[in-house]
Design a protein around this nucleic acid. Structure first.
Lengths: 237, 237
DNA sequence: GAGTGGTCTAGACCACTAT
DNA sequence: TAGTGGTCTAGACCACTCT
């Protein structure tokens, strides 16, 4: 493992264990460099990651201030769905495969997945159930040049584990757009919406490390089961 | 200005002007270092900012791929409100000062603003109107040790301009939490909610560069006037 | 094999904060 | 004045991609 990542993880551990709690400050970059027997620039790489994740804030002339962690919050930004939250908190979750078939690309898919009109696209539609309630509807569309097919077993288990481990795809980043919309008839039919008169819609385009766009997803959430925490900040380095 | 920032801005300009459009690639880091007469590490700092802002994606062994900009989207992540969007797009916007008074810190404010119970807190409540419709309700609470008072004129104009220019506060980062809630009676009274039965609530804690927490804001949006775009990605550097 | 980005170094100078 | 983080350098070695 790279040195700066090792140091980063070590510092996260120490922050979580409340070392340095009296001062709420990290040791200086020069001291850390000596302790870890690396150059100061390597320490700075590790510290930049801590800044990005909201563990510390640097103050010129003073040092690196440890930011008090709110234990009920999640530290890393961009956790978008109750699904991810459920995974993090080990909630009881169940996935129901609703639909798995090939569709022809319409204008929206042509745009969002950057494929020709009428191209055959694999569509997977799944319902997420938590504590017996159907609260999320996920519709995934995959670029067939990269993901030609997905077995029913894979769809019911974890598509991402299959993509990363079996197809060996390197997923890199996503564009996400969050809006609030009126439920469609399909939302009403498939989800336990009760009296809720809106759904939170997260539309994502997912890219690989080589910048290929390979997936478009529409994730529709019951509004009470949605929460988004933003904690990222720009790092100048 | 720092070299890497100058280079960053220059590269953004060139990307926007569609230089390098044939290959969709930046020149290599070594070439850029020679062109700008700086070291390669300085080029890498500039490129890291481009990655963070979604302008490029780096591919090991190949180079820096320019990411096609969706002109209808906004490039930088974290634009949270119709208000900010309106500013960006020069929409017609109007601010109505609804309330400006001192309140005693309750349990929520004690928590969110990290002040003692019953401390006197300046509260400013404003309504945002776009194209004649009242669509956002902003409630701001300020730590009185940092912002003791705000004139009515400042509240009706721009509080942030006053904080940054007159008080010379350096605003650094914010924790934001986005949820969807039922409208309160106050929401119904003050906003043009029509048939909408939800509001999008953005709760923010805003920090200064010296890590002082100085503001807590609750921003309540009519759901059709809300859109959040997430485009940030982690930069290892 | 040549070129690319990723990591790492040892040193330098600066602006800022503390005392 | 001493210590801090911010910037910048010139060089090195590596893993990877392309041809």
């Amino acid at each position: 493992m790279e040195k700066y990542l090792t140091i980063y993880h070590d510092l996260v551990d120490n922050i979580s264990k409340d070392s340095w709690t009296e001062t709420s400050m990290l040791p200086s970059e020069n001291n850390l460099a000596m302790e870890y027997h690396v150059s100061r620039e390597t320490i700075r790489k590790a510290l930049n990651l801590l800044v990005q994740d909201g563990y510390i804030q640097k103050v010129r002339g003073k040092g690196s201030v440890i930011i008090k962690q709110d234990t009920f919050d999640f530290p890393v930004s961009g956790i978008v769905s109750f699904k991810e939250l459920a995974n993090k908190l080990n909630f009881q979750a169940k996935t129901i495969l609703h639909e798995r078939r090939t569709v022809k690309a319409d204008a929206l898919l042509k745009d969002k997945l950057e494929v020709p009109l009428d191209k055959s696209i694999l569509k997977v539609s799944r319902i997420r159930e938590f504590a017996g309630e159907k609260v999320i509807l996920d519709k995934d569309y995959f670029n067939p040049d990269i993901v030609p097919t997905l077995s029913e077993a894979v769809c019911e288990d974890s598509i991402y584990a299959y993509l990363e481990n079996t197809l060996d795809l390197k997923i890199s980043y996503a564009r996400k757009e969050i809006t609030v919309e009126e439920p469609t008839k399909l939302d009403r039919d498939l989800l336990d919406l009760g009296n809720h008169s809106n759904v939170v819609v997260i539309k994502s385009q997912v890219y690989l490390e080589d910048t290929t766009l390979f997936q478009y997803t529409e994730s529709r959430h019951r509004p009470d089961k949605f929460k988004f925490v933003d904690f990222a900040r720009r790092v100048r380095n």
